[in-house]
Structure formats: C-alpha cells, structure tokens
C-alpha cells in the first residue's frame, strides 16, 4: 500500500513542478508550489504509518511543514502584491531583472 501512496505523491509532485515551470501567472505558480509541498506531506504521513518504524514523528513534521507553507503563502502573496504595484503585472516572464 505504501508504494501506492508514494506513487500518488510523485504524480502530484510532477504536476506541481510542471505547473510551477510553465504557468506565467505568479499566483498559479504559488499554487503549484503548494501542490508540491502537499505531495511531500503525503509522503511524510504515508511513511509515518507504513514505514519500518511507524511513529508520529512524520505527522509532526507534516504539521511544521504546513505551518511553514502557510507562512510562505502569506509572504509570497505579499511580495506578489508589492511587485504588482511596482511593475503592473503578475506575469513572471516580465520579471527579468536578473538579466540586467
């Protein structure tokens, strides 16, 4: 059963990765990153039940991960709004300051 969860997480992770790299809208990219984080959480919880030594530690880890993800989402959205104010767009392909 464990491998099914892991496969499920892998699928989710890859879809998130694809979305993060292809979508132009910065909000969607943030969403895709949440998707990837969720895939990781799923892995952690699956191991906490089906791992060699089942324990609650995996769930604790997930809990912290969720907290950090929430903080990341909040800060990410704030940065996005500030950027939008400065540049008038949320399309990441128009944020090319790194080239200059």
């Amino acid at each position: 059963m464990l491998s099914s969860y892991l496969t499920m997480a892998a699928i989710l992770f890859c879809i998130g990765l694809y979305g993060a790299l292809v979508k132009r809208n910065a909000v969607i990219i943030l969403l895709s990153i949440e998707l990837m984080l969720n895939a990781v959480n799923l892995n952690l919880v699956a191991f906490s039940k089906y791992g060699v030594v089942p324990s609650l530690t995996g769930q604790m880890f997930t809990l912290f991960s969720i907290a950090v993800a929430a903080a990341e989402a909040a800060v990410g959205i704030a940065v996005l709004i500030a950027l939008f104010r400065a540049r008038g767009t949320v399309n990441v392909d128009e944020y090319d300051e790194m080239r200059r």
Partner: peptide, 11 residues
C-alpha cells in the same frame, strides 16, 4: 489567501 491575491492583482 490566493483568491485575495488574485483579486488584488490584475489578470
């Protein structure tokens, strides 16, 4: 939060 972000930016 994401919906707020969407609403506060233009798309």
């Amino acid at each position: 939060l994401m919906i707020f972000g969407i609403m506060m930016t233009k798309h």
